[in-house]
């Protein structure tokens, strides 16, 4: 089964990326986590993302196109990265999600990847 792990981080966590005092521990934890997933041979693909401040959102309202700076919704926790992993069960995916470093302040969402549609 393929699952996407979506890592949600708080503003404070995002800020640690560029804070010289906090950055080593921040990156140390993420690099170790991703390294452990790679070592387990479960990673299919994945990326980290720049903070939500770098996002641009496009939508159409009443037939009018709107381009806005910022993410789709202004929630406390924002998507900071994602990985798609291949494991046997949801329990296994949750075990990996529970190891993600963002959990000290944020949350990780686990979602099954949509299987390819049946060939008609």
């Amino acid at each position: 089964m393929q699952y996407m792990l979506m890592f949600y981080e708080t503003e404070t966590e995002f800020a640690k990326r560029d804070d010289s005092a906090a950055a080593p521990a921040y990156w140390g934890a993420w690099n170790a986590y991703i390294g452990a997933m790679n070592a387990a041979g479960i990673v299919l693909r994945g990326d980290g993302l720049l903070p939500p401040g770098a996002a641009t959102t496009v939508r159409v309202e009443d037939g009018e196109r709107l381009v806005q700076d910022g993410p789709v919704s202004a929630t406390k926790e924002q998507l900071g990265g994602y990985f798609v992993i291949e494991v046997d069960t949801l329990d296994d995916a949750l075990a990996w999600a529970a190891r993600s470093p963002n959990l000290a302040a944020g949350a990780t969402e686990v979602r099954p990847v949509l299987p390819p549609p049946p060939q008609v």
Partner: peptide, 12 residues
């Protein structure tokens, strides 16, 4: 070895 131990931890 430390990297693996850190990456597999569930506890901050």
């Amino acid at each position: 070895a430390f990297s693996n131990a850190i990456g597999l931890s569930t506890d901050a």
